[in-house]
Design a binder for these strands. Structure first.
Lengths: 163, 163
DNA sequence: TTGATTTGGTATGAGATTCATATAATATCG
DNA sequence: CGATATTATATGAATCTCATACCAAATCAA
């Protein structure tokens, strides 16, 4: 930090460029992963949004259809249709909530896990290869970064839905 | 790396756990960013897939509808419909390819850039805040990681489409 | 050159999807 | 207890996706 003003300005410029670049790469990664999602979904006879919901149920479930609708930014009636498809395909099950007889709890069925895993296996092994290039500390930095991105995305979505 | 076998096994276990965790966080980030995308799309009266295509045109364009269909994993006729909507909304323009009179080149119109930027501004400032917690070297490591993820996603999609 | 085949983009129409609204059942509040 | 709110879903209109067909232009074959 003992730089003359010129060097300091240069460092600031470089940093700004790097941050901009990183955000661009994140957008790019999001699109490519969504494209992969779409291709996987096509093979599994699932819509993109079905897979998104399946991911949400998998990571945040079991949860109710109304909570899922909120988390996914979808209309409740749309979620009913999505859950119908996922249930018909034996991806999920709907149970009654024991504490509220109006409510429903959606949970993942492990039945077709292997099939889904197989569809993602190409990406999975590529990810393993990528990770081999990083040491333990770097992997943790990246994982933590991605965790923060999730929170940011969730918060930004909420703000936009509210406003 | 001068560890007795027990320590080495422990380190391997830890590393495997970290890699698994990282992949889970990446999936989670993809979903949250897609949800944000959906919410943004709702405000801009665009379908999720329209925004995906807009991103692809923005980063890889100008390109032809058939190339876009290939990159996005969509049917050519579907892309025609998407481009119709994007054109009607003044997001893109279709030009004839001077070197092939059958072909069309799709390019971004900057007209509505500010509007889109405003919708993403909440996420953008959150990303800036996140990046402040990392030094230059870390930012570059993360950006490079995301670049590799894009390539992996693109390759995995291609394999799946071909097979 | 001519004629056949391939390629690029889009129109058409059948089937599927989304969502505003309405509805039924249950919960909660006063 | 009665009124209101909440949860999930049925219904139907508008819209979207994609297989197919089609036309124009490029490329290939002879």
């Amino acid at each position: 930090m003992n730089l003359i003003p010129n060097q300091e300005a240069e460092a600031t410029r470089l940093r700004r460029r790097t941050v901009t670049q990183l955000k661009a790469e994140l957008r790019g990664a999001r699109v490519q992963l969504s494209v992969l999602n779409h291709v996987v979904g096509t093979h599994a006879e699932l819509k993109d949004v079905d897979l998104d919901c399946l991911d949400l149920i998998s990571s945040q479930g079991p949860l109710s259809p109304s909570m899922l609708a909120k988390r996914a930014g979808l209309h409740p009636a749309t979620v009913t249709g999505i859950l119908d498809r996922l249930e018909r395909g034996r991806w999920i099950a709907r149970d009654r909530d024991p504490s509220d007889r109006r409510a429903v709890l959606v949970r993942i069925l492990p039945e077709r896990n292997a099939e889904m895993f197989r569809l993602y296996s190409g990406m999975n092994s590529r990810m393993d290869a990528i990770c081999e290039g990083y040491d333990q500390a770097q992997l943790e930095v990246i994982a933590d970064f991605l965790r923060r991105v999730q929170a940011a995305g969730s918060d930004a979505s909420e703000d936009l839905t509210a406003g």
